[in-house]
Amino acid sequence: MIELKTILLVEDNPQDVELTIEALSEYNLANNVISVSDGVKAMEYLRCEGEFKGRTTGNSAVILLDIKMPRMDGIEVLEQIRKDEKLKHIPVVMLTSSREDPDLKKCYSLGANAYVVKPVDFGEFMEAVKHVGVFWAVLNEQPPKQ
């Protein structure tokens, strides 16, 4: 039995959250999705701080990280994750509305594992999210635990 880990979805737009979860539910991954609305909350979750203090779930298998968000944006989150010894190995997939995003380059240089342009076509979107979710949450081997 494959061990299913959580997928951390960092997205401020509730419609996108809903649609993303819908897409992941197609592959029965929806239950594993933890959704937070901005970078600050994402970091609290990852570090088990604030409202997530004492959470029981383990580290996420993959983080789906939107770039444009209030308070702390995706870039900053990625930066902190890669600096954090405990978090730096977690795969991060950047979610973006456009290929034109000037921050994409920066994302790669900061160590993003992939990026997904959120397509207008919901079908395509579902395909993209599914693949990413399955690949990182199910197939990808975690680095060995210390």
Binding site: N13, S98, E100, F122, F125
Partner: peptide, 25 residues
């Protein structure tokens, strides 16, 4: 202009995506 392009791509595409996504759903 760049940030405008970004906005257009980001901000215009999002609602479109939502329209399309919900219609599909």
């Amino acid at each position: 202009l760049e940030s405008f392009s970004y906005s257009v791509s980001h901000d215009l595409r999002s609602p479109l995506r939502h329209i399309n996504g919900y219609v599909d759903l």
